[in-house]
Design a protein around this nucleic acid. Structure first.
Length: 303
DNA sequence: GCGTCCAGGTCTACC
DNA sequence: GGTAGACCTGGACGC
């Protein structure tokens, strides 16, 4: 086993630990968190089919330190890929200056720029983000974890000590609906997952370019709704992981947070919620999510 | 131990 | 365009 470490520069408005804990993704494999050492772990699948296990920590205010383990010597090409994947996961290349400027205009949101938050952790691939989002629909978080674990255990590439990658579209496209239902426990989502993976694997859907797409957000939203198993909740939240924050992505959990925060637990319509955040324009989905999870920011380890 | 309900929704048929 | 009903699963809850 070869081991080296590299450093990656981060933007001045970046907060490593708050990005890790920006939502539940950090607790879904192949991500894992070493809470004691404030470390995010992730096994990466590189282009030459090699695997690299990365342990990411904040080195100081301006850098990340990445400990890399691989079966092969980690050459310059591999390092370049690792840097690119970590940058995309932690949104290092995304410009949040305008969002933070906007947050400073409102006293109730000034904490956002002072805590340097807003970046939401995402997977190295759009494919992984979408499959996981489908697995969050209409079920408890524990079932989402079961489905994700089963997908990785059955279709991921093995590294060592039970570490595995998230499966590729090709790997999932080669399975059957029956196997997904019986062994992966994806239930009625199974035909949706199979169809989506097949369309990605055969090139019918070029989802990986969506992170840098020139398409208008509304157009991307409709593209997402065309994927079976992706409805308004999933599409709104996938968009956030594509860098578009125009939709709230309402689900029963955030609705509950909103009812408690603004209406003493009384249920109100989705239109009422949307009306409150409309003035925040293209950043409304991010203001909404950060406000609903504000209590997380009072704890070093939120969950 | 067993039945019921519901959870970080979506699809389809029908009106 | 709006809405009712079906859909997998696992865990919490009441009995």
């Amino acid at each position: 086993m070869k081991a080296i470490h590299i450093f990656i520069d981060v933007p001045i408005d970046f907060n490593f630990w708050r990005t890790v804990y920006s939502h539940g993704w950090c607790s879904l494999r192949p991500f894992s968190v070493d809470k004691e050492n404030r470390m995010l772990n992730r096994l990466l699948h590189l282009e030459n089919d090699s695997l690299a296990f990365c342990q990411i920590t904040a080195h100081n205010n301006s850098q990340l330190k990445i400990n890399i383990q691989s079966k092969f010597p980690v050459n310059g090409t591999m390092q370049k890929q690792i840097r690119a994947k970590i940058s995309t996961m932690l949104r290092l290349d995304e410009d949040f200056a305008e969002f933070h400027r906007e947050s400073r205009r409102y006293p109730r949101y000034r904490w956002i720029s002072s805590m340097k938050v807003g970046r939401m952790l995402r997977a190295p691939s759009v494919f992984e983000d979408i499959i996981k989002m489908i697995c969050t629909t209409n079920c408890s978080w524990s079932l989402t974890e079961i489905m994700t674990n089963n997908l990785i255990d059955e279709f991921g590439k093995s590294f060592e000590n039970s570490k595995q990658t998230f499966p590729s579209a090709e790997a999932l496209a080669g399975t059957t609906e029956q196997f997904l239902r019986k062994s992966i426990k994806t239930g009625y989502r199974s035909p949706f997952i199979l169809e989506f993976a097949t369309n990605v694997a055969n090139g019918k859907l070029n989802i990986e370019q969506w992170r840098n797409s020139p398409l208008a957000t509304e157009v991307l939203y409709k593209e997402l709704l065309n994927i079976k198993g992706v409805g308004m909740y999933a599409a709104g939240n996938i968009l956030k992981l594509l860098g578009r924050y125009d939709f709230l992505g309402l689900d029963s959990w955030v609705r509950g947070q909103y009812y408690n925060l603004y209406h003493n637990g009384r249920v109100v319509s989705d239109k009422t919620i949307e009306r409150l955040y409309k003035p925040f324009g293209r950043w409304r989905g991010l203001f909404f999510w950060l406000e609903m999870t504000k209590h997380w920011f009072k704890k070093e380890i939120p969950f």
